[in-house]
Simulated assay, not measured.
Amino acid sequence: MEPWPAVAWVLLLTVIADWLKTAQSKDFTEQDIIYLHPSTTPFPGGFKCFTCEEAPDNYECNRWAPDLYCPQESRYCYTRHMMNLEGDSLSVTKRCVALDDCLSTGCSEDHEGNKVCTACCEGNICNLPLPWNETEAVFATTSPLSGTAGLTGSYTLTSVFLTLLISSGVWDTDV
């Protein structure tokens, strides 16, 4: 065999080996997200969230999440993570939500003794990781809540702030 076809085969096998190694990874990276989720939007400010209902773990949720834009009335990405007593994932739910669904983030215990952590974030497919504890189960915004399009009627920055303080237990209402 001539040297040139042999070099071509070696290069081809190297590319295939690298592809197989990448394809077998069990975690997503930001580069995967950029590749899988193009940036054209159907309306100004359009964004996407990973979306799944009661997936067995984060990988299965993110892997099969539909590539759809959130409705215009949504502003945030929501994640609900349920774990057993050993800390293993039991279910993962992710979706697009409005502000009201993000006012009670944190961790709690359900009636079966499972730990349930919820988190919200603002931004295009920002709900990649799972909340595993109180430190990660937060409402993370990139813009001030007073500028949020979903704040109308009786919602003001002050009422949202007070609601967050009361729900987190920082402010005792029995005083």
Rank of each mutant, 00 (worst) to 15 (best):
T163D: 11
T93K: 05
H111D: 02
L128T: 15
T173N: 09
A149T: 12
P56C: 11
A6N: 06
T29K: 06
T29C: 04
E109W: 14
R63N: 13
V116T: 02
T93D: 05
W171H: 03
W171F: 14
V15L: 08
N84Q: 11
T41E: 14
T141S: 11
K94E: 03
V116D: 01
G46D: 02
C117A: 06
Q24T: 02
L99A: 03
D88E: 11
C117N: 07
W4R: 13
E122N: 08
G153V: 04
S154R: 05
Y69W: 11
M82V: 14
N127K: 04
Q72F: 04
G45K: 10
G45C: 01
A55R: 05
M82L: 07
I166D: 01
R80Y: 10
Q72W: 05
G169E: 01
C96M: 10
E109A: 08
V175T: 10
V116R: 12
S104H: 14
S91T: 08
V170Y: 07
L12C: 15
T173P: 00
A17L: 04
S39T: 12
A8V: 15
G113Y: 11
T142N: 14
T105W: 11
V170C: 06
G150L: 04
S167M: 08
S89N: 13
T158L: 15
V7C: 12
L145I: 15
W4G: 04
T41K: 09
E86N: 09
L103Y: 08
A137F: 02
T79H: 05
D110V: 12
V92W: 02
Y69I: 09
S168Q: 07
C117W: 12
D174M: 11
L145R: 00
D88I: 01
T118W: 01
A23R: 09
P71T: 07
W132C: 02
R75K: 08
T51F: 00
L68Y: 09
L164P: 03
M1C: 09
E30R: 08
P38Q: 02
S167D: 08
K94H: 08
S39G: 09
T158S: 10
G153H: 01
V138C: 06
D18H: 03
L20D: 00
L128H: 08
A137D: 15
Y69N: 13
P144W: 05
W19A: 13
V160L: 11
T148L: 14
Y69H: 13
